[in-house]
Simulated scan of single mutants.
Amino acid sequence: MASTTDSKPLVWPITGCSAGFGKSLALLVLKAGHHVITTSRNPPCSPHLVKKVEELGGIWLPLDLTSSKEEMQKVVEQGTSKWGRIDVLVNNAGMSILGALEDFSEQEARLVMETNFFGPVKLIQTVLPQMRARHSGIIVSISSGAGVDPSPAMGMYGASKWALEGASQGFAKELASFGIRVLIVQPGAFTTNMMNAVTLTKKDASVDYKGTVVEKIVDVFRNSGNFKAPNDVEKGCQGIFEVVTGTGRGAGKEGHARLVLSQDIAQRTVEQTKRNTDALEAFREIWENTGHDSGVAKSTADIESEAGSR
Score class of each variant (00 low, 15 high):
residue 215 E to A: 13
residue 124 I to F: 00
residue 30 L to G: 04
residue 122 K to Y: 07
residue 20 G to R: 01
residue 310 R to S: 11
residue 223 N to V: 08
residue 206 S to W: 10
residue 90 V to M: 02
residue 32 A to Q: 15
residue 99 G to S: 10
residue 111 L to A: 13
residue 292 H to W: 12
residue 77 E to A: 14
residue 50 V to F: 10
residue 257 A to F: 06
residue 96 S to G: 14
residue 63 L to Y: 10
residue 289 N to Y: 07
residue 207 V to A: 14
residue 61 L to E: 08
residue 127 V to F: 01
residue 48 H to T: 15
residue 187 P to A: 11
residue 285 E to V: 05
residue 309 S to T: 10
residue 119 G to A: 12
residue 175 L to P: 02
residue 54 E to C: 03
residue 222 R to C: 13
residue 22 G to Y: 03
residue 298 K to N: 10
residue 23 K to W: 04
residue 254 E to L: 05
residue 281 E to I: 12
residue 141 S to E: 02
residue 212 T to E: 07
residue 26 A to C: 10
residue 197 A to G: 03
residue 141 S to H: 02
residue 264 D to K: 02
residue 96 S to A: 15
residue 116 N to M: 06
residue 109 A to V: 07
residue 1 M to Q: 07
residue 165 E to Y: 08
residue 66 T to Y: 12
residue 11 V to H: 03
residue 27 L to G: 00
residue 50 V to W: 03
residue 80 T to F: 12
residue 252 G to P: 00
residue 262 S to C: 07
residue 213 V to C: 04
residue 75 V to T: 10
residue 296 V to A: 13
residue 204 D to I: 12
residue 165 E to G: 07
residue 115 T to Y: 07
residue 219 D to E: 15
residue 86 I to Y: 02
residue 180 I to K: 02
residue 182 V to E: 04
residue 26 A to T: 07
residue 23 K to A: 03
residue 152 P to H: 01
residue 30 L to S: 03
residue 9 P to I: 05
residue 292 H to F: 13
residue 20 G to M: 01
residue 158 G to Y: 05
residue 273 T to S: 15
residue 17 C to Q: 05
residue 1 M to R: 06
residue 290 T to N: 05
residue 147 G to I: 02
residue 3 S to A: 11
residue 173 K to L: 15
residue 285 E to M: 06
residue 141 S to V: 01
residue 7 S to H: 08
residue 229 A to F: 00
residue 279 A to P: 00
residue 228 K to A: 14
residue 288 E to I: 05
residue 74 K to W: 03
residue 124 I to G: 01
residue 223 N to L: 12
residue 296 V to T: 14
residue 290 T to G: 11
residue 226 N to W: 14
residue 239 G to Q: 07
residue 276 N to C: 13
residue 286 I to M: 13
residue 195 M to Y: 05
residue 160 S to Y: 07
residue 121 V to H: 07
residue 192 T to S: 04
residue 269 T to M: 09
residue 163 A to S: 15
residue 189 A to W: 09
residue 185 V to P: 02
residue 101 L to I: 12
residue 133 A to C: 10
residue 272 Q to G: 04
residue 183 L to F: 13
residue 287 W to T: 08
residue 115 T to H: 09
residue 157 Y to R: 02
residue 164 L to A: 04
residue 38 T to W: 00
residue 274 K to R: 15
residue 170 G to W: 07
residue 145 G to D: 06
residue 243 V to S: 00
residue 168 S to K: 01
residue 106 E to G: 03
residue 255 G to M: 06
residue 86 I to D: 00
residue 77 E to P: 01
residue 37 I to N: 01
residue 121 V to F: 11
residue 174 E to W: 10
residue 171 F to P: 00
residue 267 Q to P: 01
residue 236 G to S: 01
residue 143 S to F: 01
residue 293 D to I: 09
residue 230 P to N: 08
residue 257 A to N: 13
residue 294 S to Q: 13
residue 85 R to D: 06
residue 33 G to F: 08
residue 154 M to E: 06
residue 201 T to S: 12
residue 57 G to C: 08
residue 79 G to A: 08
residue 125 Q to G: 04
